[in-house]
Simulated assay, not measured.
Amino acid sequence: MTTQDYNKQEMESRTFEYPMIIREFHLDTFGHVNNATYLEIYEEARWQFITENGYGLKEIKTTGLGPVILDIRIRFIKELKLREAITIFSKTTAYHSKVGTIQQWIIDSKGNKCSDVEMSIGLFDTTARKLVKPTPEWLKAIC
């Protein structure tokens, strides 16, 4: 995808999968995953797929351009418990000018959706302290 293509209303992109096991440190006093921990799990999955696609922390430090979340909507559908195997799915669904949309969802080993999230993201210039249009490298990493 080129920078000229990013302006499309809806986009075809890959769906990234990130399997993991719920560990003891994910749990709260109720014995299930706390709401804030869901955000950490989703973030871990996002860092994994952008790093695997060539836009990890090294690239961010080199270019001074990195991802930023602008807003987030999260739903908790089914609780996650200790030692449960889950898969986090991530997909970029749109990119308009400087703002993109990523959807993520968690599926347990029985195929149940446990949570989903939709967020607006952008590419942030850490020197100028503002959003910039997505670069081809950034689009390659997330689409």
Rank of each mutant, 00 (worst) to 15 (best):
N35I: 05
R73I: 10
W105V: 03
E79N: 08
N53D: 06
E84F: 05
I88V: 15
W105A: 07
F30L: 13
G66F: 08
N53I: 10
K91S: 10
I60E: 07
I106R: 04
F76P: 08
I77A: 00
L70F: 06
Q48C: 13
A45V: 03
Q104S: 09
F30W: 07
K61N: 14
N34F: 00
Q104C: 09
K110S: 15
A45I: 00
I106W: 02
L57H: 14
K98N: 06
W47K: 02
I60G: 07
V99F: 00
R83Y: 13
G54C: 06
T37K: 11
V99M: 02
T101D: 02
H96Q: 12
K58T: 14
L27C: 01
Q103C: 09
E44Q: 14
Y42W: 06
K78S: 10
L57M: 15
V99T: 13
R73N: 13
Y55R: 11
E79Q: 11
H32E: 05
G56V: 11
V68I: 13
L39V: 02
E52F: 09
Y55C: 03
L27Q: 05
F89D: 00
I88E: 07
A45F: 09
F49P: 01
W47H: 08
S90A: 10
S97R: 11
I77L: 08
I72L: 14
Q104N: 11
Y95G: 02
K58H: 14
W105S: 10
E40D: 09
I69R: 14
D108F: 11
Q48L: 09
S97L: 09
E59N: 12
Y42S: 04
N53C: 04
E43M: 03
I77V: 15
G64Q: 02
K98V: 07
G64L: 07
T37F: 05
E24W: 13
H26K: 00
I107V: 12
I50C: 07
I22S: 05
S97F: 09
T87G: 00
D28R: 01
D108Q: 11
K58N: 14
I107L: 08
E52W: 03
G111N: 03
H26N: 10
E79H: 09
F76G: 06
N34M: 00
I74V: 11
I69Y: 12
D28C: 01
G56E: 08
N35C: 02
I22P: 00
I77Q: 05
I86D: 02
E44S: 12
K91P: 02
F76T: 08
Q103A: 12
K58M: 11
H96R: 11
I69P: 13
F25P: 01
I77G: 04
Y95D: 04
I72G: 02
L57E: 14
